[in-house]
């Protein structure tokens, strides 16, 4: 085809331009749907419990991701500071994932268990009360507002459509028992979502106020489980290299 034919035919020019610029994207993205060894086979990764799921939604609502990444890269300095590098498997149930690359604050991929619940509550209400140098904004309303969870089933159903194994039917529940064990499977049962959420909030008492379930309960429950699902002592150093 001659240069001139394309140049003098606007429709053809647009079509061919689209073809050319989509090649780059297709080559990068499409193979990921077919290459089967990008997601590591590890024990322990499970979808969020209903309370953690609400916490994650609040994390997204408040825009925490604008300052915090959840992706520890495989570099020595990052391992020393944050712990084992993040695995693809660890965010396989995240829609959307919270990897990010903007780090005004530290990476949060393994913040679970690093601090006490009490610290998180104080820090989220007023970061400078515990970290005088902090430039993080306060989120005091999380402690004041009751958590809304009358729509928790709908949130879980939506994720189920996206492929997260929350169960609705007996068969799905049985499959989850097989895959995650009885206790976890019960947490993933959409029909029990409300009682599970209430029970976890009562048991955990994350915000220090057992009389009600606040948004703070959900947020702290979420933060305290981040990066804690995989037991890295069970895998030798070379294992995760096999998935690259």
């Amino acid at each position: 085809m001659k240069h001139e034919t394309i140049e003098t035919n606007a429709g053809l020019l647009i079509a061919l331009t689209l073809v050319v610029i989509s090649i780059g994207g297709l080559v990068e993205i499409v193979p990921l749907f077919y290459i089967d060894d990008t997601v590591e086979e590890v024990e322990g990764v499970r979808p969020y419990t209903p309370l953690e799921l609400r916490g994650r939604d609040l994390y997204v609502r408040e825009g925490c991701y604008t300052c915090h990444s959840q992706m520890i890269r495989p570099f020595r300095d990052e391992m020393l500071r944050y712990g084992h590098y993040s695995l693809a498997a660890e965010s396989m149930y995240d829609h959307p994932f919270q990897w990010g690359s903007k780090r005004t604050g530290p990476d949060l991929a393994r913040v679970g268990g690093k601090y006490s619940n009490d610290w998180h509550v104080r820090h989220l209400i007023d970061p400078r009360a515990v970290v005088p140098e902090s430039i993080m904004p306060g989120y005091p309303w999380l402690a004041r507002r009751d958590l809304r969870y009358d729509d928790i089933e709908r949130r879980m159903r939506a994720l189920r459509i996206a492929g997260v194994p929350y169960s609705l039917t007996e068969e799905e529940f049985a499959a989850n028992v097989e895959r995650f064990g009885e206790e976890t499977a019960r947490q993933l049962d959409i029909t029990r979502a409300r009682e599970n959420l209430e029970a976890q909030a009562r048991r955990g008492n994350y915000d220090g106020d057992p009389s009600r379930i606040t948004e703070m309960d959900a947020m702290v429950a979420y933060l305290q489980m981040l990066g804690t699902l995989v037991d890295f002592t069970r895998y030798d150093e070379g294992y995760f290299v096999e998935f690259r």
């Binding site: 495989p74 020595r76 590098y85 998935f243």
Partner: peptide, 16 residues
């Protein structure tokens, strides 16, 4: 001794 094609995880292991 182990050998792997070049990738950032193996690179990190060697670096460590």
């Amino acid at each position: 001794p182990q050998r792997s094609h070049w990738n950032s995880r193996a690179l990190l292991l060697r670096d460590m």
